[in-house]
Write a protein that binds this DNA or RNA. Structure first.
Lengths: 145, 145
DNA sequence: TCATTCCCTATCAATTTACTCAAGAATGAG
DNA sequence: CTCATTCTTGAGTAAATTGATAGGGAATGA
């Protein structure tokens, strides 16, 4: 009942890139160090996000990655959907394909579909920009733990 | 991003048992046929739920399983928690153990923790009795698909 | 033309999942 | 008592998924 590491790492990378000055690129190598993800694994992830229209890249000396559009237009849901090939489907419970009919089967499906929708909505609403700003609360004297 | 089959099968079994007249037991064999789950796999699942205080069993001739308490006191969340050893933790994203600090890391965690809580709350609220009653809407002329 | 940096695909090891098998132990009918 | 019935228990396994590595290829620009 969890997201894949790919999704998590993808989110890390996008957050890091979103935190950079605009028009600055970061190399995979740098992203790797900051995010704590191996260069080779990151490559795959970044590539998918490039093809998915979230990042853009530049090759050669001075190349690297940057966001392809503003952080306020990128949602958590979009990234997760891209990396995991789908959003929240809490179970095979939601898809009734081939499942037998038993007492409560319809109710169970309805119930999980509702929860799924709730989660997916929440994920589609949250933008990268919002998440970044949650990080540094401005009017609260934050504890450093 | 889904629940295990064990959880799903466990829910099926409990729903089927909840739909029986009180004080009637069902044998694993019968549950297997109705739920479409193999006898041997069901055995494991039912056993866990017995130990978890959701079902009770009786051995020997005329034995079988039944609910250990009323369907209105059993929630989806309880069963899932029992079978999967935990409820919704959308990711390793939620547990910050050993993850590096990067821009947005705190915000991301907060964000997912919120969603987790939402889901878990929904699961803890829904009772087996409710799900059963959703199955047969009383005031709506339902389609048979 | 060459160092740099991203691009792409194949492969692998570990883990998890879903499930099976085989033998044991309680129960109660006769 | 004894025997069929039914649950109990734990070990074992096959397939799928995941997380990660490896290595050569292709663009870029100095």
């Amino acid at each position: 009942m969890r997201f894949s590491k790919k999704s998590e790492y993808a989110l890390r990378a996008v957050l890091i890139l979103a935190d950079c000055p605009p028009n600055q690129t970061l190399q995979i190598q740098e992203l790797s160090v900051i995010s704590g993800v191996s260069v080779k694994f990151l490559e795959q992830i970044l590539l998918v996000m490039k093809k998915g229209g979230i990042l853009r890249s530049k090759r050669g000396v001075g190349g690297g990655y940057q966001l392809d559009r503003p952080a306020r237009s990128i949602t958590l849901g979009e990234i997760i959907q891209l990396m995991d090939g789908g959003l929240c489907e809490l179970s095979g419970i939601t898809d009734s394909h081939g499942t037998p009919e038993y007492p409560g089967s319809a109710g169970l499906q309805t119930c999980f579909r509702e929860i799924d929708e709730q989660v997916n909505e929440a994920l589609q609403e949250r933008t990268i920009e919002e998440v970044l700003s949650m990080d540094r609360p401005k009017d609260i004297l934050a504890f450093e733990i």
